[in-house]
């Protein structure tokens, strides 16, 4: 059963040094507030998993929280580079970053295998690409029925998955909708699940398009309105495209970046 906790307590209890952590949300519902709490608590040596590292992991990587990144597309969507990610990979600043790099189809299927508690998933993927040469989690498997050679990708089973959702009820049942990305798979693949929500309600009103994570699949729910900013929660907030544009100059320079984190994360409550 999920406990309703403060974000501070939930992060302290569920996220530990050295964990493999997936903070998902495909552009929509990205759990920024929880990431900022991880930075504030000084949690480190994480393996970060996420299809699109986005600005959220740019911030974590720039603060040296991660030693390894598992991903499939590392850009600032519609804007350009993730400069902290590039600085870590190209120059080892503030620390070297190991990569395990996939395609979106491969990463999506790794979560599916993880949620299904299977060791791997199969797909028609990576054919002719150089990507398998650089990853130990991409291989091939022969179909026992047709003999077709297919790509196999290892399951992802995070120690902790963190997501943001529109609502939860007081028992900790979680409801999210709009672009639902891979959050259901990422949550069901993990040992521990932390969900931040826009709103806690007495009773969840059923929605035909919603993903529901029953309370017994979630470990902690924290009430964090606007906890996805600069991403968004459909029905509650809108994507702050101006912030994504503004992040480019902020993140280009190490000192500007650190000053931004100091002001907006470390010294923020």
């Amino acid at each position: 059963m999920a406990d309703i906790r403060s974000l501070r307590d939930a992060v302290a209890e569920l996220v530990h040094d050295g964990d493999t952590v997936a903070m998902e949300g495909f552009t929509h519902l990205i759990p920024f507030a929880a990431a900022h709490e991880i930075i504030r608590q000084g949690i480190t040596d994480l393996t970060l998993v996420r299809m699109t590292p986005d600005v959220i992991y740019d911030q974590l990587i720039g603060m040296g929280v991660a030693r390894r990144l598992v991903f499939s597309w590392g850009g600032n969507p519609g804007v350009g580079s993730l400069h902290r990610f590039r600085d870590a990979v190209e120059n080892g600043w503030p620390r070297p970053l190991e990569l395990d790099e996939h395609s979106h189809a491969g990463m999506a299927n790794r979560y599916v295998a993880g949620a299904s508690r299977l060791p791997f998933a199969v797909l028609r993927g990576y054919r002719g690409s150089d990507l398998p040469e650089r990853s130990s989690t991409i291989a091939t498997v022969t179909c026992p029925f047709t003999g077709e050679e297919l790509a196999a990708v290892a399951a992802v089973n995070p120690d902790v998955t963190v997501i943001h959702a529109q609502r939860a009820d007081r028992r900790g049942n979680v409801q999210l909708w709009g672009l639902v990305g891979v959050q259901k798979e990422a949550a069901l693949a993990a040992d521990r699940v932390l969900v931040t929500v826009e709103e806690i309600v007495d009773e969840l009103e059923p929605r035909p398009d919603a993903v529901v994570l029953p309370s017994w699949t979630v470990h902690a729910v924290a009430h964090v309105p606007n906890g996805a900013h600069p991403s968004y929660a459909a029905g509650y907030t809108v994507r702050d495209n101006d912030f994504y544009q503004a992040w480019d100059p902020i993140s280009r320079d190490r000192e500007t970046f650190l000053a931004w984190i100091r002001e907006h994360v470390l010294e923020a409550p």
Binding site: T52, G74, V89, L123, R124, Y126, R127
Partner: peptide
Amino acid sequence: SEGRLPGAGGAPE
């Protein structure tokens, strides 16, 4: 060191 681009995304498939 290699210069980093964003990566594959959905393109290979």
